[in-house]
Design a protein around this nucleic acid. Structure first.
Lengths: 141, 141
DNA sequence: TAGCTAATTGCAAATCATTCTCATTTGCAT
DNA sequence: ATGCAAATGAGAATGATTTGCAATTAGCTA
């Protein structure tokens, strides 16, 4: 049996295996590229970053890998208004997003209060929140 | 000079004119179809409903009219996860949406408390909320 | 009311993000 | 080392939306 992962590399392999996926060269590269990103790249940008690590990964595989890992809760797909989907690793605690309308930059924030209110409102209407999406489209004051 | 609109029909014409648009047969039909809807149709559904009123309106015109009216704040474009954009007239007071994951139905709700918290959070980060989007993807309890 | 002109329209082609098909390759359990 | 299901890349397909363009029309103005 395998012990604890010894390196970043082994860690990636474990994550993939744990998701029931084969640890292919391509998937290791994509996942490494994404987990090294501290922003939220879209498929094309992630493709570019992945290629730096491994020349031979197709855009198709980027999409396929993101879909698989999303299914397993390893990555989140963010879909902001009128732009292609972006991705982030799901390891950070839950948060919502502020989108700077002038620069396009995305800032993360979290509010326990808002989460509670959401659950409360849903409950009053007979629902249970499975997941939510809160985006504040903002401008600097 | 024009007096107050005398009918629903004149009202539509006024709305279009006020948006700087010519009150064409097609636009009147689209706007009537949308303002008669109490749900949130996507472009195709709105096209279907418009055709009932006026046989000769193209899908292209649906898209173009929605874009124009959105610019002028007369309609809102809703873009939920993984589905085509939906539209609603902007006359109702602001509200957010609960999406029933099983049926796809959309329920509106509003929460003054949540709005206040959002503004507060943005302010703390040096931002001012221009608009926001809050969607609760839910299941019946 | 007729005429003018810029705005609008419909159609088809173009675009963009994303998914699918399928023949070839590869991870990994045996 | 071997076999086979899973994964890959290339390109075609899809679905939503936009755009180019020639023909039509709303709404002045005379």
């Amino acid at each position: 049996m395998a012990g604890k992962p010894q390196s970043r590399y082994d860690e990636l392999i474990e994550i993939l295996r744990a998701s029931g996926l084969k640890a292919t060269r391509q998937r290791k590269a994509v996942l490494l590229a994404l987990s090294s990103s501290d922003d939220h790249p879209d498929a094309n940008e992630l493709h570019r970053r992945t290629r730096v690590l491994d020349d031979d990964v197709s855009l198709t595989t980027i999409y396929r890998t993101m879909s698989e890992l999303e299914k397993n809760g390893v990555v989140h797909r963010l879909s902001f208004e009128g732009e292609p989907a972006r991705f982030e690793t799901a390891d950070a605690p839950h948060h919502d997003h502020i989108i700077d309308l002038d620069t396009g930059h995305v800032i993360e924030f979290q509010s326990e209060k808002i989460e509670r209110l959401q659950a409360e409102i849903a409950r009053e209407l007979g629902y249970e929140v499975v997941h939510h999406r809160l985006e504040l489209y903002c401008r600097k004051r």
